[in-house]
Design a binder for these strands. Structure first.
Lengths: 267, 267
DNA sequence: CGACACCTTGAAGAGGTTCAAGAAATGTGG
DNA sequence: CCACATTTCTTGAACCTCTTCAAGGTGTCG
């Protein structure tokens, strides 16, 4: 079975007090105070354009008006809130979800350090979804008019904003494929592979992860009921593909997961 | 029953030879040659920002490099094609779809006159989906580097581009809600209401429409099999909610459709 | 007119949901 | 630190929706 004491090595040790730890162990800070400026932020390569001049980097620092801490379970913004800013996640983990009048509910995404939330608000000057912290979090607040002003001056930033939005569109295409054409096992396998891949890009393990969300939230995202998520996890465990202990997941056979998502076309 | 001769009034008369007819009967042309300039295009309010100065309008005209005609069934672009331009649809009807290696297939959207396609290509400089004309179509080709240059100069255009991308993100959230939490009837009802609403905004009937796509394409978009789409249409007909004759659909009771999508919360 | 693509309908079956109960973890307050 | 309440997770059994497979009908185009 899974041993909790061995499968939470340094990178995954991100409890509720993770504020003052580096989020990406790729470039660990030395325990001193985190620098506020984007130009010296270790997440820069995730959320900012590359190849800026020194001068441009200085101006980019003005993008972030301030930092904001969000407690676990609290909203960063809510459906209907007026749109003012985009948010770059520094630490923590968010979900975004929408709701229709009759109480239907859909998680539209899970976001982690280095990712941008708030893009939904641009079109109508107010947000159309909720962004809820799934663990204590900190974000950089980037007022959108500043972004527009600066991207007016810095071509690379304009391009970067376009790419971030386009990336979100492409991501959602993938979710539509998942929701529209995959079976439960395929959805969960794709979900796990996606999560672990994004975590790996941030310096975490390729094979172990701690789910920050409940079965119900996973189910909502994947278009399944929580019982189905639970059963599918159990099935994966039976087959020796993963080990699961509550929210701790160890991927034993990632190739098997890949085969579930993409059945080999025998040719 | 539905009478094909009465339910295709002027607005819906958009056969394969519709090139030289105005697309939006709201502001009909006088039968002369269509002006090429955006500044005098009757679709401008759909695809261009409002409130531009005369000078700015002139420069906007440079956005469109040229027009391009796409025959029914032909691709505007394909997955893997290098990304150069966004396309504003002048006439015709498109679907966009993605495919995974193992042959899975998902229609991600249907686009009509005044809508923009190609946003998926920005992030990686190549397209990640196919855009296929479902009827003979004509598009305005807008090279993306020109868009970026011009939106550097014209603030309203920059804002407009952001809004278009944000709108697409929000639209896809809605599709995710549909795919993740609705049953077949609800999906089809939502689909019909959405289509007819968009057509109505273009001057077409509120209650009659001609489907430009097959049952299979509808099914792919809605995450259903074509048989389910067909059966659900039949069910709606039985209940007197719509009349269907092949691809001609008349919505008899749109309130019923709305109730199917949004069951009344009895409080 | 014949070939082909598209649509409809039936019957059987699979996959996921619903309802229900209990177990395990987590948080709270004394 | 422990007891209790609450949330979260797991599992079983019955049920339901949608899919699959199959056959036949309808419309379109060369």
């Amino acid at each position: 079975m899974l041993n909790p004491s061995t499968h939470e090595p340094a990178p995954t040790t991100r409890g509720n007090d993770a504020f003052h730890h580096p989020v990406t162990p790729i470039m660990p800070l030395d325990g001193k105070t985190i620098k506020v400026a984007c130009s010296s932020c270790n997440l820069r390569e995730l959320c900012m354009p590359l190849g800026l001049s020194h001068d441009e980097l200085d101006r980019i620092d003005d993008l972030v008006a301030n930092r904001r801490k969000v407690k676990r379970g609290a909203p960063l913004f809510r459906n209907g809130d007026s749109f003012t800013s985009l948010y770059a996640i520094r630490t923590g983990f968010f979900k975004t979800c929408i709701a229709s009048e009759d109480g239907r509910h859909q998680v539209t995404g899970f976001q982690m350090a280095g990712e941008i939330v708030g893009l939904d608000g641009i079109v109508n000057d107010h947000h159309t979804c909720d962004a809820i912290a799934l663990e204590d979090a900190e974000v950089c607040v980037m007022p959108f008019d500043r972004i527009e002003d600066l991207s007016h001056q810095i071509h690379a930033l304009q391009r970067h904003v376009h790419k971030i939005m386009s990336r979100e569109i492409v991501r959602e295409h993938g979710v539509m494929l998942l929701l529209g054409s995959m079976r439960a096992e395929e959805r969960l396998a794709a979900f796990l592979l996606n999560l672990v891949q994004r975590l790996h890009a941030r310096g975490f393990s390729q094979s172990e992860l701690v789910l920050r969300m409940t079965r119900e939230e996973i189910g909502s995202y994947l278009g399944l009921k929580l019982e189905t998520v639970s059963r599918t996890f159990s099935k994966f465990v039976e087959e020796g593909i993963v080990e699961v202990k509550q929210r701790h997941v160890r991927i034993v056979d990632s190739e098997a997961l890949r085969l579930i998502v993409n059945p080999q076309v025998c040719s």
